[in-house]
């Protein structure tokens, strides 16, 4: 049936995003307390499929949203998220200078790099990202930290959005396994 793709698309939309985690990997998050805040360090290897790389070299900027959540470890119907912090990064390519432009839209940082893997590593670096005030945490209580990475399809050109929903080459999202952490002031 020619309209079966509609059904398939809707079905794919309803799938858990962890199924799409093919190209993005994360190293262990490292929480620590700096001053009055819980901060997180970490490193993510952001996914970049050949199609995405080709799009990048054709002048299409790729945006990722990196989100770190802190949740109650107790789960009833669902886990209660105490706080979350998002970081949106953008990668583009300058064909004249043959340089990748790295923008952290959340922290307003801009870098350049000629090497794509290095540029992705730079973009995926989480350095002392404040998550929550320690006042909101209870001593000696276990919490869960979770990392999520999403490709921002809304930033893609309109013509590409539908394809990015259908094409597996555009599935690089990641939902990391919750990592337990005990707050010890």
């Amino acid at each position: 049936m020619r309209w079966s793709w509609l059904v398939i698309t809707l079905s794919l939309l309803s799938y858990h995003s962890s199924l799409w985690a093919e190209a993005t990997r994360a190293t262990l998050l490292q929480p620590s307390i700096q001053g009055q805040h819980l901060v997180v360090d970490g490193q993510i290897s952001l996914g970049m499929t050949p199609t995405m790389e080709k799009a990048l070299l054709h002048g299409i900027a790729i945006e990722y949203t990196i989100q770190v959540k802190i949740m109650d470890s107790a789960q009833w119907l669902w886990r209660n998220t105490l706080a979350s912090r998002k970081m949106r990064v953008r990668l583009s390519y300058d064909p004249l200078k043959q340089t990748y432009l790295l923008s952290n839209l959340t922290l307003s940082r801009l870098n350049t790099d000629r090497d794509l893997p290095r540029a992705l590593t730079t973009l995926g670096a989480i350095q002392s990202l404040p998550i929550i005030s320690i006042q909101a945490l209870e001593a000696n209580k276990a919490y869960l930290l979770q990392l999520e990475v999403q490709l921002e399809r809304e930033s893609l050109p309109n013509a590409l959005r539908l394809s990015s929903l259908i094409d597996s080459e555009w599935r690089i999202n990641l939902t990391g396994e919750p990592q337990s952490w005990v707050f010890q002031p």
């Binding site: 054709h58 002048g59 050109p157 013509a159 590409l160 959005r161 539908l162 394809s163």
Partner: peptide, 16 residues
């Protein structure tokens, strides 16, 4: 860059 972007978006644009 604009031309390359358009060239890359040609097929997705048709599909879309």
């Amino acid at each position: 860059a604009q031309y390359q972007t358009l060239a890359f978006l040609r097929e997705p644009l048709k599909t879309s």
